[in-house]
Design a protein around this nucleic acid. Structure first.
Length: 814
DNA sequence: ACTAAGATAGTTTTT
DNA sequence: CTATCTTAGT
């Protein structure tokens, strides 16, 4: 798909030997090299030519990368300004910076080219902005701005936003940019997307960005590529300077990033014909970002792209116990098209990977909650436990449960600090003070807080701005002087113009953090939240305070704004002990003693959408996700799957994930939750319904479920109670007929769960398991009296907890 | 211009 | 089911 890099002969081994010598001998005994294993050391010391380090989970990838930089510096092979080191996240960049700093001293202060792809891209682009039609102080737009911009374009083009949503076009443009495609390079077929106007809209969007003196995230790379391609002299300059390149998480690079690296890796002035010194570190088994443009092929193709490349495999895992590693390895072995690694551990086997079935997601959450409490009683830190989910909707169940348990938890991920509305609003104010021509910022806050300025007013301003080719702020200044507007909006706008002029002047003499306070106060923005009665208003005020405080770390407003658009993240206060809840994606790169992996069901992991959209590639990426999940665990990995999950409001039955079948039986322990099945609330009377599902009995899913029932699961324990629980919890999964209403689905499934091979395995206790007046016991709320029955929902007056509505399966007769 | 009731869709996420 | 966005009503 992309042209391979220019063929280059491998370097003669002796070519660089001269410069090493004494210093090298000193470095050989360098403290930072001590403690590396043979492969790690090889990866660190192979400084010349292309090197691919295949670093499996927990094999010391970051250590190799940072040590390599330290090594380069202390050998004197490169000055800090000659090393390009790129990562994907700010977190990774920060960590690298810190760790290199620890090894080498303060030299890192001068590592200007260590950062994320985007930060480094922006840095280069600012230096040569004019060459790509921008000014050096261009604004970096985020997704929000992007969408707003595209919305305007669609409106101007009279395109029905219903049929062609702005975010879809934004996604498409992003996709093109990820693949390194400029307007001219979009394949004809794809350009016809969006009612045949895809490319035209892309073109118009790019033109609009230039007018606004703005670049979106994609441009930071794509315009960079264009810059380097169209100006060979500049390319040469960077090629010559950046003599050593290091790339983290290479499996996650997209085509644009790949092209950019390739351009920089072409032979520079000093290197003659020698291959460039590029070292990519990654793990094809942890490539989980295909859906956002990452191309695993980049890493699979490395040796082809960089002939003569050395490949170093790091396979010694220092993180997990034997059973955990065995489970992860066997699972990932089911993927085809891997470079292939075998993780080994020196440690003990440890606990087996627990695979537990539960009736539904609520029970799953309860079981995990109990296990966490047990671990806590045994002296384990909550900080060392994490729940890793496939999709964020799974989180709520755990949050709900943990709130009632009073268990401290923290959700990792979610909306980033700078993505929060209040922060973006505050930023827009500052951007507008800094750059009155920032139309997007203007539109965002002109009526926040409410100033009585609506669509009509904005339309008038836009019309004037377009007609005269000026910014909205300028247009406003002009329009306010006319009587084109009604008195009310006119007065409001007059105030806005005056206020910004005032703040701008004030900025000349006032420190930027203080200025921000003044702006937020005088604009009425702070008051807006002070007067807001909603629950999260207080939090927003806190965020604003934090926002202003964080400004103090920067020299000036300009510097702060650059930081915020590229680098700001939420790594905030992690003070109290808490269980972490996050997605599998967010967990990459982290590790915990105990990892809970709920939701291992067909359709969720692997996710149906992945399967539908990307077929086998999708399945393999899901498998890698599962692999990432297991390998986060140091000592305990616990997998769960449920029979029933509520999705989009209706109950859906689920099959255990095929990934569970792919685990090595000898490394796992299978069981079921000790759910309160006694009170299942089975109500006979409609068993004939089962016949309606008969056609599903021959499906692969059904067969697999049966197989499990007969195999590992039914023999999981000698305890008859457990055995029954296992059978029940491992019911025949049925596909809910499409469109089945929730109650029907639920009833049908409940019924299904009670029968295996058509045999009733759970006894029912009458039409209604409970009736008003019954004395019952609930695990959490204690004893109480049933006051009303509604289907399987009971209203209970608890002695201590008050009145609650509870599903009958959660209570037992007292 | 703002509010309240309807429609709609609903993995994963960084920069 | 529920969060979010759009539309209709005041």
């Amino acid at each position: 798909m992309t042209n391979p890099i220019q063929r280059q002969p491998p370097a003669p081994p002796a070519a660089q030997a001269g410069s090493i010598s004494a210093r090298a001998r000193m470095a050989a005994g360098a403290p930072y090299l001590a403690g590396l294993n043979a492969e790690q050391r090889q990866a660190v010391e192979a400084l010349d030519g292309p090197v691919l380090v295949l670093a499996g989970a927990g094999t010391g990838k970051t250590r190799v990368l940072t040590t390599r930089i330290a090594h380069l510096l202390s050998l004197g092979r490169a000055r800090p300004g000659e090393i390009l080191a790129v990562t994907f996240t700010n977190k990774a960049a920060r960590e690298m910076k810190n760790r290199v700093g620890e090894m080498v001293g303060q030299i890192i202060e001068g590592m200007p080219w260590l950062g994320t792809f985007h930060a480094v891209g922006a840095k280069i682009l600012r230096r040569h902005a004019e060459l790509v039609g921008l000014k050096p102080d261009f604004t970096i737009l985020d997704v929000d701005d992007q969408i707003r911009l595209i919305k305007q374009q669609l409106a101007a083009e009279n395109i029905d936003e219903k049929r062609w949503p702005a975010r879809v076009l934004a996604g498409q443009i992003d996709n093109w940019k990820n693949r390194g495609l400029t307007v001219a390079q979009v394949p004809a077929g794809e350009g016809a997307a969006f009612a045949g106007r895809g490319v035209a809209l892309y073109k118009a969007y790019q033109e609009r960005l230039k007018i606004l003196n703005a670049a979106d995230f994609g441009d930071l790379l794509l315009e960079n590529i264009r810059l380097l391609r169209e100006h060979p002299a500049i390319a040469l300059q960077y090629q010559a300077r950046l003599r050593f390149m290091l790339v983290d998480e290479y499996q996650d690079t997209n085509t644009a990033q790949y092209l950019w690296l390739r351009l920089l890796a072409q032979r520079g002035g000093d290197a003659g014909d020698a291959p460039r010194n590029i070292c990519c570190v990654g793990d094809d088994d942890q490539s989980i970002y295909g859906w956002r443009g990452a191309d695993v092929d980049n890493i699979l193709r490395f040796e082809h792209d960089f002939p003569g490349a050395q490949v170093v495999r790091l396979e010694r895992n220092y993180r997990s116990t034997g059973h955990i590693l065995a489970a992860a390895s066997r699972l990932i072995a089911h993927n085809q098209g891997r470079l292939g690694k075998t993780l080994r551990t020196q440690g003990e086997d440890g606990e087996k990977v627990a695979v537990t079935s539960a009736w539904d997601s609520e029970e799953e959450a309860r079981a995990i909650g109990e296990e966490i409490e047990q671990l806590q009683r045994d002296g384990h830190d909550l900080d060392e436990m994490a729940i890793l989910v496939r999709a964020s909707f799974q989180m709520r169940e755990f949050e709900d449960r943990f709130v009632t348990l009073g268990l401290n938890y923290r959700v990792i991920g979610g909306p980033r600090f700078y993505e929060r509305a209040e922060i973006r609003d505050a930023l827009a104010y500052l951007r507008l003070v800094n750059q009155p021509a920032d139309d997007l910022a203007f539109e965002r806050i002109v009526n926040v807080p409410k100033r009585g300025l609506g669509d009509a007013t904005l339309k008038a301003l836009n019309a004037h701005a377009r007609a005269h080719g000026v910014s909205l702020m300028q247009a406003t200044r002009a329009v306010v002087e006319t009587d084109a507007l009604k008195p009310r909006p006119r007065a409001a706008l007059r105030e806005v113009v005056a206020a910004f002029a005032r703040w701008r002047a004030r900025g000349e003499t006032t420190a930027h953090a203080e200025l921000a306070e003044i702006v937020l106060e005088e604009s009425g923005y702070i008051d807006m939240w002070r007067n807001d009665r909603s629950a999260d208003a207080a939090g927003r005020l806190d965020n604003l305070k934090e926002f202003v405080r964080s400004m103090e770390e920067f020299e000036n407003l300009q510097g702060f704004l650059e930081h915020v658009s590229l680098v700001m993240d939420t790594d905030g206060g992690a003070d109290a002990q808490a269980v972490s809840i996050m997605t599998l994606h967010a967990a990459k790169g982290l590790e915990f003693d105990t990892v809970f992996l709920p939701g291992w069901e067909e359709g969720l992991l692997p996710h149906q959408r992945s399967l539908d959209d990307s077929g086998r590639a999708g399945l393999e990426e899901e498998r890698r996700l599962a692999h990432v999940g297991i390998t986060r665990a140091r000592r305990r990995a616990k997998i769960y799957f449920v029979a029933n999950r509520r999705m989009h409001g209706s109950w859906t039955s689920a099959l255990p994930s095929r990934f569970i079948d792919e685990l090595p039986p000898e490394a796992i322990d299978v069981g079921a939750t000790r759910g309160e099945f006694g009170g299942l609330g089975a109500r006979p009377g409609r068993f004939e319904r089962m016949d309606g599902f008969a056609s599903n009995y021959g499906t692969p899913g059904w067969r697999r479920a049966q197989q499990h029932g007969r195999g590992a699961f039914s023999n999981a324990t000698d305890d008859p109670e457990d055995a029954e629980a296992a059978r029940i919890a491992r019911p025949a999964r049925l596909t809910v007929p499409a469109g089945a209403s929730a109650p029907f689905a639920r009833d049908g499934l409940r019924r299904a769960a009670l029968t295996i091979d058509g045999e009733l395995v759970a006894k029912s206790t009458g039409p209604s398991a409970f009736s008003a007046g019954d004395r019952v016991f609930h695990q959490k709320f204690g004893n109480g009296n049933v006051t009303a029955v509604d289907g399987n929902k009971l209203t209970i007056q608890f002695d201590r907890a008050g009145e609650k509505r509870v599903v009958d399966s959660f209570v037992a007769r007292a």
